[in-house]
């Protein structure tokens, strides 16, 4: 078996043996499952509130009452909370995956041995990236299956084939989003001397991408960005926000992810029930930026591994 695959398989095996990784994974999958349940409880109660309001308005003599707005929402909106959990827990999990991938080698003392053989630096890099991708693919596949099964088990409106297709595309997009964060975790695990800094810097970047840039672009506070109903709200008017949108908009990966995901899951404030083709066309720029970001991280990781020098480490500092 080529050495790259051996490294990749070893990577996945070791990762799935780690208790902390399992804890994060369990929380992530549980939250995905819970999000369907939360969506069901919330929509059922809201429908009851709507019915009570209609009765109240009828008694007050109002005749022209709008139809229940929940009925106009597509079936996929039941999964809109998953966007938030991938955005929050998924990306943090991905940072841990990338971080552990290299820190593990540094701490075990296997790295000096591996890097004494020059050809192994490249293979180590490709093996690690493949292993990380496989782990993320397994995580995303598990959540996709959980979502589809929860839609069958809970009394939701059933998903039709095009809904499943949209859900699939959403999870494919999520895979790339998580891969970006895993590579950021890997990069700082290679570059940074201390283990804590290697975890804290990606967390800083994560906060910047998830909250700071979207706030500057959209004017929304961090908690408002976690509300799936308003997460892709357009920014207020004004020169400041126009400037931010122009210069910081392209860098705002978190904002791109949530707005693209909202459109894929038919949860967008701007476009509801737009076709998949239209959603993909409208968001091709965002996807391109995400892929560029992944490409940049891959190149930096590759360069860093090739130039990695073994040093005496105080990894706990």
């Amino acid at each position: 078996m080529p050495i790259i695959f051996t490294i990749a398989i070893q990577e996945v095996k070791v990762l799935f043996r780690e208790r902390v990784f399992f804890l994060l994974l369990a929380i992530f999958i549980l939250m995905t499952l819970a999000s369907s349940f939360i969506g069901l409880v919330a929509t059922t109660t809201t429908t009851s509130i709507y019915n009570a309001s209609v009765e109240f308005l009828h008694q007050a003599g109002t005749d022209n009452i709008p139809a229940n707005p929940l009925n106009a929402l597509p079936a996929l909106t039941n999964f809109r909370n998953v966007i938030v959990y991938i955005f929050l827990i998924g990306s943090l999990l991905a940072i841990v995956v990338g971080h552990r991938s290299f820190i593990r080698e540094r701490k075990s003392g296997a790295l000096p041995l591996l890097l004494t053989r020059p050809i192994l630096a490249e293979k180590l890099f490709f093996g690690k990236v493949l292993g990380i991708s496989l782990a993320l693919f397994a995580i995303i596949s598990a959540t996709f299956i959980v979502s589809v099964f929860s839609s069958l088990l809970l009394p939701f409106r059933h998903l039709v084939a095009s809904d499943i297709e949209r859900l699939f595309l959403f999870y494919a997009l999520s895979f790339f989003y998580l891969l970006f964060f895993a590579l950021v975790g890997l990069l700082f695990a290679i570059k940074t001397k201390s283990e804590s800094l290697a975890l804290f810097v990606p967390v800083c970047i994560w906060v910047g991408i998830s909250f700071v840039l979207p706030e500057l672009v959209s004017g929304q506070t961090p908690t408002a960005l976690l509300n799936p109903v308003t997460m892709d709200q357009v920014a207020p008017d004004g020169t400041f926000f126009a400037l931010m949108r122009t210069y910081l908009g392209p860098l705002s990966l978190g904002w791109h992810y949530t707005s693209f995901s909202s459109q894929l899951l038919n949860n967008s404030l701007q476009i509801t029930n737009a076709g998949i083709g239209s959603a993909l066309r409208d968001n091709s720029g965002k996807l391109f930026i995400l892929l560029i970001a992944i490409g940049v991280c891959l190149s930096l990781c590759f360069y860093s591994i090739r130039n990695y020098t073994i040093q005496e480490e105080n990894i706990y500092e």
């Binding site: 929380i27 919330a42 809201t46 929940l70 938030v84 908690t223 976690l226 509300n227």
Partner: peptide, 29 residues
């Protein structure tokens, strides 16, 4: 450190987010 972050994400982001999402007036744009 990672478990501290898990507790942080639950207390700071997840639980408040669930509460906010369950608000009946937050279900419709």
């Amino acid at each position: 450190l990672i478990i501290s972050f898990v507790i942080w994400i639950l207390f700071v982001l997840i639980i408040p987010q669930i509460g906010d999402t369950m608000d009946p007036d937050n279900q419709v744009p």
